Amino acid sequence: MKYCAFLRGVNVKGTNMKMAEVCGVFKEAGMEEVSSVLASGNIIFSSDQKADELKTILEKAMSEHFSYEAFLFVKSQEEIQNALHNNPFEKSEDQHIYIFVGNIGIEKILMNAFENASKAENETAEIVDDIFYWKVPKGNTLDSAFGKILGRKNLKDQFTSRNVNTLEKIVKKF
């Protein structure tokens, strides 16, 4: 089965790694047809194992190889295609759309945090099929009240997010 692993916190705040080296770690851990998409920690690969087993194997391999506490989320090709297809927002030049990948139930925690945060004009969020989607004006991603909540350390092992453009590139590479 084809999967994509979404690594959290790669090439930000001092956690720098080359995607070729990350791909090597995945291959050493038994993954096949390994390749990366962009430098933000999106690794496409094949395996016969289940996603939850792969998460454990790959987090351990990444943590040991790079000497850091690795967090990643594994989604099947079908799950990624569905998340992209179900995006409730229309793309526009002045907005970013993020799709969140994470632990079961994280979408409700994120929606609660979003609802309790002050919002920029035209900033909105929706949950579709247990996936959290966030639309924010360009330039406001890190400065928004919700954006600041996303960086909290107590949530770092719960989710990661990708811009819809990144998911389109991942689907194209499958």
Score class of each variant (00 low, 15 high):
residue 2 K to M: 07
residue 4 C to I: 02
residue 8 R to T: 00
residue 9 G to H: 01
residue 10 V to K: 00
residue 13 K to C: 08
residue 15 T to L: 14
residue 15 T to I: 09
residue 15 T to M: 11
residue 16 N to H: 10
residue 16 N to Y: 09
residue 19 M to S: 05
residue 20 A to P: 06
residue 22 V to G: 00
residue 24 G to H: 08
residue 28 E to F: 05
residue 31 M to D: 04
residue 32 E to G: 09
residue 32 E to L: 15
residue 39 A to E: 12
residue 41 G to K: 02
residue 42 N to A: 07
residue 42 N to D: 11
residue 43 I to D: 02
residue 44 I to Y: 01
residue 44 I to W: 01
residue 46 S to L: 10
residue 47 S to E: 10
residue 49 Q to T: 09
residue 52 D to I: 14
residue 52 D to G: 09
residue 52 D to V: 13
residue 54 L to V: 11
residue 55 K to L: 12
residue 55 K to G: 05
residue 55 K to S: 12
residue 57 I to M: 10
residue 59 E to S: 12
residue 60 K to P: 13
residue 60 K to S: 14
residue 61 A to M: 06
residue 62 M to T: 00
residue 63 S to K: 05
residue 64 E to A: 11
residue 64 E to R: 08
residue 65 H to R: 14
residue 69 E to Y: 02
residue 70 A to I: 05
residue 71 F to T: 03
residue 72 L to F: 05
residue 74 V to T: 02
residue 75 K to D: 01
residue 76 S to V: 09
residue 77 Q to M: 07
residue 79 E to Q: 13
residue 80 I to E: 00
residue 83 A to M: 12
residue 86 N to G: 02
residue 87 N to T: 09
residue 88 P to K: 06
residue 88 P to M: 00
residue 89 F to C: 02
residue 90 E to F: 09
residue 91 K to H: 06
residue 93 E to V: 08
residue 93 E to L: 11
residue 93 E to C: 10
residue 94 D to K: 10
residue 95 Q to F: 10
residue 96 H to F: 12
residue 96 H to K: 06
residue 101 V to E: 03
residue 101 V to M: 11
residue 103 N to K: 14
residue 103 N to H: 08
residue 103 N to R: 11
residue 103 N to V: 13
residue 104 I to R: 08
residue 104 I to S: 13
residue 104 I to Q: 10
residue 106 I to N: 04
residue 107 E to T: 06
residue 109 I to E: 12
residue 110 L to P: 02
residue 110 L to A: 03
residue 113 A to F: 04
residue 115 E to A: 08
residue 118 S to F: 06
residue 118 S to K: 14
residue 119 K to H: 15
residue 120 A to S: 15
residue 121 E to L: 15
residue 123 E to N: 09
residue 124 T to N: 13
residue 125 A to N: 09
residue 125 A to E: 01
residue 126 E to S: 13
residue 127 I to A: 09
residue 130 D to K: 15
residue 131 I to G: 01
residue 131 I to K: 01
residue 131 I to A: 01
residue 132 F to S: 03
residue 132 F to M: 10
residue 134 W to L: 08
residue 134 W to Q: 04
residue 135 K to P: 00
residue 141 T to W: 06
residue 143 D to F: 12
residue 145 A to V: 10
residue 145 A to C: 12
residue 146 F to Y: 05
residue 148 K to I: 11
residue 150 L to E: 03
residue 152 R to M: 13
residue 153 K to I: 11
residue 153 K to V: 07
residue 157 D to W: 03
residue 158 Q to W: 00
residue 158 Q to G: 00
residue 160 T to D: 04
residue 162 R to D: 03
residue 169 K to C: 06
residue 171 V to G: 07
residue 172 K to S: 12
